[in-house]
């Protein structure tokens, strides 16, 4: 072929080689097509490990029992099925640094389940409910009701 045909070809090949070289050095080597194919599996593989290595803030459900013996009365309590860390938590730094464990005794926390909706509303029906504005409004619930033993009244 004539020289003038080849000359632009060299330029094209050079540009392609350059962009491939730049891509090689700039892209992480684990970036590419993985399991799942080009459609769903085109990503940086190392990112999975990054997400998996995130520290967990809530401890395992049975971790509390390692140190805190659950009393027999608590396991019989209607509140026994609630995770400890819903009110005492999250417990990420707890055993090492006990004061960091926040305890929420707020009225709003109780009302999440115990505010009565006057119509049938799924799982709420099975929970005893009050009218938040009619039942001692703005008073703290835990002053009268023991959150661990809700059927027993707190002795003043």
């Amino acid at each position: 072929m004539k020289e003038y045909v080849w000359r632009p070809m060299y330029v094209v090949v050079l540009i392609a080689a350059l962009s491939l070289a730049v891509r090689f050095f700039l892209l992480p080597h684990d970036f590419g097509v993985h399991e799942g194919g080009y459609k769903y599996g085109y990503y940086r593989l190392g990112n999975i490990a990054e997400w998996e290595s995130r520290p967990a803030l809530f401890r395992s459900a049975d971790d509390c029992g390692d140190c805190h013996r659950q009393s027999e009365s608590l396991s019989a309590s209607p509140h026994a099925f609630i995770s400890c860390q819903n009110c005492h938590g999250p417990a990420a730094g707890h055993p090492e640094d006990p004061p960091t464990l926040a305890i929420d005794t707020g009225r709003d926390l109780c009302l999440r389940c115990h505010a009565d909706l006057s119509y049938p509303a799924g799982g709420r029906d099975a929970v005893p409910g009050i009218d938040p504005l009619g039942h001692h409004p703005f008073r703290s619930c835990v002053g009268c009701h023991d959150p661990h033993h809700p059927r027993q009244e707190v002795q003043p």
Partner: peptide
């Protein structure tokens, strides 16, 4: 909660749900 599942725990929302929903 991939970071919890790889450690053998359930997702945070699953642990927190009192009703097992």
């Amino acid at each position: 909660c991939t970071h919890r599942l790889t450690r053998g725990d359930a997702s945070a929302c699953v642990e927190a749900c009192p009703f097992g929903a």
